[in-house]
């Protein structure tokens, strides 16, 4: 089993190197997208799939990460020029860091916010997490719009230096994957699954469910913050409208398709959904069917995914990999 993992690792690293150097820019941008969405979806799956706490948080934490990284990367002079609505606050001008520390700070801040959210939410049982995190996403957006001193309001931030490339996105994706698998195959991962299966029984085993849920939530938030930072440095421009509930919805499709609780499934789901989004781009454009012009309908391709989600719920509720990892499925097969 170890050999399989190591060879997987080597192949992915070689692939990243090859893709970064030899693939055309369009395909490369898709791969970057896939890598970032994989980071987001993998970490989202930890709280939603593995721990079984239905949460709608990613857009909020991605926004936090994107804004923090962007503000750290943009130079003070550019900020003075860019902030049109109000002059930037002194602290915003003073923010300056290299890419890696900026990403780490983004992640840590997101994790800290997650901790603050989890204290009231995880003290009680039930679907409060979904409600709170849904509201949280909106609050972040409103904060971003209404504090032009810090965020340049609805105009967003642009001229973010383009630091992200496939080495960064792909590398962090691999690290995220490893971190998630390491957590899952430890006492913490077992405890998370136990909480998903039967919270009372988990408590009866001496598991402090509050802390385990908080760990899972903070870990998710950390990687979502980092992913947001990568996204900002890839797109070079961000605005509050980018981080709406639709982003969360996309990630939800990915993890449901791949299988809630399966990290390898999430990888497959990401490739299918993000790749599929590109492939289905023609649906958004003007088409001619039997001489009849349909006109352009931006967002048509989302309909395909909505239908896909409905079909999944009806016929394959557990997703492609269910809650098993690829390696576990192989292990079962060889028996």
């Amino acid at each position: 089993m170890k050999m399989v993992k190591i060879s997987f690792l080597i192949i992915s690293i070689l692939f990243i190197w090859f893709a970064q150097n030899y693939i055309d820019p369009y395909a490369l941008s898709i791969l970057n997208n896939i890598a970032i969405f994989a980071i987001l979806a993998l970490s989202y799956n930890l709280i939603n799939g593995v721990t079984g706490q239905f949460s709608l948080e990613p857009n909020g934490f991605v926004a936090i990460g994107a804004y923090i990284t962007a503000l750290f990367l943009i130079s003070a002079d550019t900020k003075v020029d860019m902030f049109a609505l109000e002059d930037p606050a002194p602290i915003i001008l003073a923010m300056s860091l290299d890419f890696l520390p900026a990403l780490l700070v983004s992640g840590v801040v997101a994790a800290f916010v997650a901790f603050i959210l989890s204290v009231p939410v995880f003290r009680v049982r039930g679907d409060y997490l979904a409600i709170v995190t849904l509201g949280f996403g909106f609050i972040i957006k409103i904060l971003a719009i209404n504090n032009p001193k810090y965020t340049n309001g609805a105009m967003g931030l642009n001229d973010i230096p383009e630091f992200s490339n496939l080495y960064w996105t792909g590398g962090i994706m691999i690290l995220t994957m490893l971190a998630m698998l390491n957590i899952i195959y430890s006492k913490f991962g077992r405890a998370m699954k136990a909480i998903r299966d039967d919270e009372d029984a988990a408590t009866a085993m001496g598991i402090n469910t509050f802390w385990i849920k908080t760990y899972a939530f903070m870990t998710s938030a950390f990687f979502e913050g980092v992913g947001g930072g990568l996204l900002a440095a890839l797109l070079t421009t961000i605005s509050p409208d980018q981080f709406t509930f639709l982003l969360t919805f996309q990630l939800l499709i990915i993890i449901v398709l791949g299988g809630l609780g399966s990290m390898t499934g999430t990888m497959v789901g990401t490739i299918l959904v993000i790749g599929g989004m590109e492939w289905l781009r023609f649906l958004d454009e003007n088409m001619t069917i039997f001489g009849y012009e349909t006109g352009a309908h931006p967002g048509m391709r989302m309909v395909v995914f909505a239908i896909l989600l409905i079909i999944m719920m009806l016929f394959a509720r557990k997703g492609i990999f269910q809650d098993k990892e690829l390696t576990e499925i192989f292990k079962k097969g060889s028996k």
Partner: peptide
């Protein structure tokens, strides 16, 4: 009986060793 249904017998017992 309330076993953890997504887990193997060994994992169920391992949960008991959590602390």
């Amino acid at each position: 009986i309330r076993l953890f249904k997504s887990m193997s017998v060994l994992e169920n017992v391992l949960i008991g060793f959590h602390n």
